[in-house]
Measured scan of single mutants.
Amino acid sequence: TIDDAFRAIERAIQAENEGRYREALKHFLDGGEMIVTAAEKEASQKVRNLLLHKGKEVLEWAEHLAEWILE
């Protein structure tokens, strides 16, 4: 659900702030994927587009974090 997705993102932010970057990455990926999944089930085109945009933002952040971890 969207609530689960945002809880995962909150955990990711907390982990990132505490320097637990790999854990943060996992939570960002989980949250982003949950948002995209919820968007695919959404009946309203406007809400679907907003959710897809937010999911994409979260997944892009996860990608940047992963690249930073690997440096």
Rank of each mutant, 00 (worst) to 15 (best):
L29N: 03
A66N: 05
E42D: 02
A38M: 12
A12C: 10
V58T: 01
E60G: 08
K26T: 06
K41T: 07
E71N: 10
F6C: 12
E10A: 09
W61Q: 02
E57D: 04
L65M: 06
K46L: 14
E33I: 13
K41Y: 09
A8M: 14
G19W: 03
K56W: 11
E57I: 13
K26V: 06
I9S: 02
A43D: 14
L51K: 00
N49C: 14
Q14A: 11
A43I: 12
N49K: 06
S44F: 08
T1P: 09
D30N: 10
L52W: 04
E67Y: 10
A66P: 00
A12V: 03
A38P: 02
E42M: 10
L59F: 09
D3G: 11
A5T: 02
I9K: 00
E40C: 14
V58E: 12
G31A: 15
R48P: 02
K54N: 03
Q14C: 10
R48V: 05
Q14V: 08
M34R: 05
V36N: 08
V58Y: 06
F6D: 03
F28T: 01
E10D: 10
E16G: 11
V36T: 08
G55V: 12
D3L: 15
W68T: 06
E42Q: 09
L65F: 03
A62K: 00
E60T: 08
R7D: 06
L51V: 01
G19I: 03
L59D: 02
Y21L: 07
G19P: 02
I2N: 04
K54G: 07
A24W: 08
E71C: 12
I35M: 14
V36D: 01
L59Q: 07
I2P: 01
V47H: 04
A38F: 12
I2G: 02
G31N: 03
R7Y: 05
V47I: 15
K54M: 15
K54Y: 15
A5S: 02
I13P: 00
A5Q: 01
V36E: 07
V58A: 07
Q14T: 07
K46V: 14
E23D: 11
D3T: 12
A12H: 02
R11N: 08
Y21A: 01
N17P: 01
E16S: 15
N17S: 13
A24G: 02
R48Q: 07
H53W: 09
E40R: 12
L59V: 07
G31S: 05
E67S: 08
E67Q: 13
W61F: 06
L59R: 08
F6H: 04
V47Q: 06
L25S: 00
W68H: 05
A15H: 10
L59P: 00
I2R: 03
A39H: 04
E63V: 12
I2M: 06
